[in-house]
Design a protein around this nucleic acid. Structure first.
Length: 288
DNA sequence: GCCCAGGAGTGTG
DNA sequence: CACACTCATGGG
């Protein structure tokens, strides 16, 4: 099936390129291809509209793509609000097409447990390997990310063969803590309670809980802090401290849109490392 | 070879 | 509370 959507603004390279999702890849023509549930989807542009093609059989695909790309987020309002921040205001429009994605809750949880202390190419490889061994084929050579019950078939040793290292025991364990009913229950919680409950799972600390809250459960007030965000906060705001300290700062400063602020800071800091970044301006009181 | 990575868990001061 | 250490390994 093939259809178009109006989702604006949207930059596929920024949104799917690095960091949020790990199973999407860019084709030579600039299209993006990746799985949504058990459907392989291609996203591209056609006369200024987002063109979506997927294999037939899912009538709700337009709604699923819209949800995945958070089509209902009012980016203009979000950027307008954040532009009131003296540090963020100067570089925001560069990231206008960057949208936070809404991943499947379970896939997001499992993916970010695997993402601990690994770089993005390796994370993608681990997830791909786990999918190839334990997922279901959706088209030739592509498999869905395995469900919790799919993974219950796997031993720790088999998971380790996917290159997971010490993460194997965590994935093995959480696949036995989580099922559809538990996800359904967690979806009812607000961010603070969700975060606390996620952190009871083995292999889920503050950072993973915040990533899962943001990218899996759509909690835009979550603010995941990794080494890049630490760097950005230190460089731009001259603030260093514990996770709690930095998260408190972000919550107070950006509130309900902290998640978007985090993505802007994350991408800017990574781009800066590749010396192609458009710097946000430093906090006025910290200059000199 | 070296350094680093969308960290978490555990133990100690 | 703050550190220090370990975990297991591939990518650049």
């Amino acid at each position: 099936m093939r259809f178009t959507l109006e989702i604006e603004p949207l930059d596929l390279d920024l949104t799917l390129g690095c960091g949020q999702v790990f199973r999407w890849s860019r084709t030579g023509r600039g299209d993006w291809i990746g799985p949504i549930g058990r459907h392989l989807v291609t996203l591209g542009w056609e006369n200024g509209r987002l063109s979506v093609s997927a294999q037939p059989g899912e009538t709700r695909m337009p709604a699923r793509v819209s949800e995945f790309l958070r089509a209902s987020d009012d980016i203009m309002e979000i950027q307008s609000t954040l532009s009131g921040d003296s540090v963020l205001s100067s570089g925001l429009e560069r990231f206008r097409g960057l949208r936070i994605v809404k991943m499947d809750e379970w896939e997001c949880l499992a993916s970010y447990v695997l993402a601990t202390y690994a770089n993005i190419p390796r994370i993608a490889k681990m997830i791909d390997e786990v999918s190839m061994r334990f997922g279901h084929e959706i088209v030739d050579g592509v498999r869905s990310f395995p469900s919790p019950s799919d993974l219950r078939e796997a031993s720790v040793g088999e998971l380790q063969k996917c290159g997971l290292g010490y993460r194997a025991k965590y994935l093995h364990s959480i696949s036995r803590c989580i099922d559809r009913a538990e996800i359904r229950r967690l979806k009812l919680l607000e961010y603070r309670d969700l975060r606390r409950e996620l952190m009871t799972l083995p292999g889920v600390g503050e950072k993973v809980a915040d990533c899962v809250s943001l990218f899996g459960f759509g909690k835009l007030d979550a603010f995941p802090i990794d080494v890049w965000i630490e760097r950005a906060i230190s460089r731009l705001f001259n603030l260093e401290g514990s996770y709690k300290t930095i998260r408190g700062f972000a919550t107070q400063r950006w509130g309900d849109f902290a998640g978007y602020a985090q993505e802007y800071l994350y991408f800017n800091e990574r781009a800066l490392a590749k010396s192609s970044g458009c710097e946000f301006s430093r906090c006025a009181q910290d200059q000199g």
